[in-house]
């Protein structure tokens, strides 16, 4: 062991001598992220306080530091704002409920088929995300199987439809972000030493108590990572609402998109983007603090 330590210190002393190397490795990628991520966000912040120029050309704005843009944008769109977070929350909870048993089964109950099943979880996501969302429109549509079954057993009436509804939007979102939930859950469940569960059994815990007191706490890093990876893209999504929803299910993403392209109202779009990002970052920070995991990246 002694010579290993010696070799180790040799390696580290070499690295300390060339302390420039890590910066050379970082520079190209970090410059790219700075130019095309940090600067645009800063520019967005600048745009968000602009107002239309006096001559009234559409799409031309000047800087007046009007912070009231934020208040106007929020008040005008508070419905879409709360809807974004409610839908994202519902989709995250549903995805967790679907993914946890799935990840658990793959990690502990699938024996030699583990890798195959893992591939099968990811496989659907090689078909284009938009094609799958449109497939949901067909599945839930008037000619689809779901509506026929539900009408057949009289759960819904003949005049109720499932598409163009909040139900369809949340279904699509849950589906589209499911692998982002399943994979981190599987990764943390798979790392659990099965002997910890056996030990709980030896100490007279029944299956449910073992699950609640051993498995769930040990899988928390996966739960935190999975819920974040689902919630963040879901809160900013507008594709599911555009394809599966109706005018009353519009989310903040839809508003930002149409402000940009249809109305060329850049300041409002920028203010809304910023508010969305800030709200997500605040929620995520609180959540990570509460859940007590920092090993996310």
């Amino acid at each position: 062991m002694a010579f290993l330590h010696a070799a180790g210190s040799k390696v580290s002393s070499l690295k300390e001598k060339r302390s420039l190397l890590p910066y050379l490795l970082l520079a190209p990628g970090i410059i790219w992220l700075f130019t095309f991520f940090v600067l645009p966000i800063a520019n967005l912040a600048r745009t968000s306080t602009q107002t239309p120029t006096a001559n009234g050309d559409t799409g031309s704005y000047e800087q007046t530091y009007r912070f009231a843009n934020y208040i106007d944008a929020f008040l005008e769109n508070k419905e879409q704002f709360s809807r974004s977070f409610i839908y994202a929350f519902l989709a995250t909870v549903l995805a967790l409920a679907i993914a946890y048993p799935l990840a658990y089964g793959i990690a502990f109950k699938s024996g030699k088929y583990k890798n195959l099943l893992l591939v099968l979880v990811v496989a659907p996501f090689f078909t284009s995300f938009l094609l799958r969302t449109i497939a949901w429109k067909q599945i839930l549509g008037e000619e689809g199987p779901v509506i026929a079954i539900l009408r057949g057993i009289h759960i819904i009436g003949d005049n109720t439809s499932l598409t163009a509804s909040a139900f369809a939007v949340v279904t699509g979102m849950t589906y589209n972000f499911l692998p982002f939930m399943t994979l981190p859950l599987y990764a943390s469940l798979e790392r659990i030493d099965p002997r910890t569960m056996e030990a709980a059994g030896d100490l007279y815990a029944n299956a449910f108590t073992t699950f609640r007191k051993v498995t769930v706490p040990l899988s928390m890093p996966g739960v935190v990572a999975g819920t974040l990876l689902t919630f963040i893209p879901a809160a900013g999504d507008y594709v599911n609402a555009a394809i599966l929803g109706n005018p009353n299910t519009k989310m903040l993403g839809n508003v930002i998109e149409s402000r940009f392209f249809k109305i060329v109202d850049y300041p409002t779009a920028a203010a809304l983007s910023f508010t969305l990002m800030a709200a997500i970052l605040i929620l995520v920070t609180i959540y990570i603090r509460k859940a007590g995991t920092e090993e996310l990246v």
């Binding site: 645009p40 967005l44 893209p233 930002i256 779009a269 969305l276 990002m277 970052l281």
Partner: peptide, 13 residues
């Protein structure tokens, strides 16, 4: 951790 719509909109702006 940034929603895609924000990434897209900020770059375009």
């Amino acid at each position: 951790a940034t929603p895609e719509v924000v990434l897209g909109a900020s770059l375009l702006a």
